[in-house]
């Protein structure tokens, strides 16, 4: 009974998509709508209008800020879905949170069966960690001038966190991962959009509006940087949380 329903649902959602794709203009067609309407305007006036020398950042956070807000919401929802699956199967320490001792013993058992961390890997990761952190901060904060931004910098930050967790053991990460602050970090991207959007609403009258007039155009830059930092922290926290929970299960 379930199977025919599933097939019907797949067909119901796939057929409109296939029809829509068939109606798209050919690849690289210069008269395609995407090349004839807003692109030229973005390229000509984007840098001064959107407040970011990097046009990608300008389009992503200013012209299409609502779209980016949707993206970070999707990422946050994905985290909730992954955690729901991992915690729902009852294999992670969280599911036995009522007995803290049990989860600790489980951790000890794991570590005794896993090979010790290579001293070479440990040394190199520790040596490079501050440089990776610096690079992540550079990519995040310089994203409105050069290629980069919150998503990319957040991924670098998460990579650093995961590398350190593998070298130092996930237990060394517990002070960061298990505090009351953790949910706020995981939701940082969504929250930053809410805050910046509200500030924009007060300044310009539109949610996620950025003031472009001379007295306030510096505020615009600060708002964009606030979004970048929020996206980076939120993205890094989501990736790191998924890693820690997969490690635990």
């Amino acid at each position: 009974m379930r199977r025919p329903i599933a097939i019907a649902l797949v067909l119901l959602s796939a057929i409109p998509l296939v029809v829509a794709v068939a109606g798209l203009p050919a690849h690289g067609d210069p008269s395609a709508p995407v090349h004839t309407h807003v692109s030229a305007h973005y390229i000509e006036r984007g840098a001064e209008e959107a407040g970011a020398t990097n046009l990608v950042t300008g389009v992503l956070l200013n012209y299409r800020g609502l779209d980016a807000a949707g993206e970070v919401t999707v990422i946050f929802t994905a985290l909730i879905a992954v955690l729901a699956i991992l915690l729902g199967t009852g294999t992670t320490p969280e599911s036995t949170a009522s007995s803290r001792g049990a989860s600790d013993r489980r951790g000890a058992d794991r570590e005794s069966t896993v090979a010790p961390v290579s001293p070479i890997v440990s040394f190199v990761v520790r040596l490079l960690a501050p440089f990776i952190a610096l690079y992540a901060a550079y990519v995040i904060l310089h994203g409105h001038v050069t290629p980069g931004g919150g998503f990319q910098g957040g991924a670098i930050l998460a990579g650093l966190f995961i590398a350190l967790a593998m070298v130092l053991g996930t237990r060394a990460m517990q002070p960061v991962a298990r505090t009351a602050l953790a949910p706020w970090l995981q939701g940082a991207a969504v929250l930053s959009f809410v805050v910046v959007g509200t500030v924009g609403a007060f300044l310009t009258g539109f949610f996620l509006g950025f003031p472009a007039e001379p007295p306030l155009h510096l505020v615009r830059e600060l708002l964009i940087i606030a979004l970048e930092v929020g996206i980076a922290i939120g993205g890094a926290a989501v990736l790191a949380t998924i890693f820690l929970h997969m490690e635990a299960s």
Binding site: A115, S118, I120, V121, V124, L128, F131
Partner: peptide
């Protein structure tokens, strides 16, 4: 310098994991 440090380390980690 980064390449000289990170690439041999990756090779070492992969070979060590395979050996282990």
């Amino acid at each position: 310098g980064l390449v000289l440090l990170s690439s041999p380390t990756t090779g070492h980690a992969l070979a060590r994991a395979a050996h282990r």
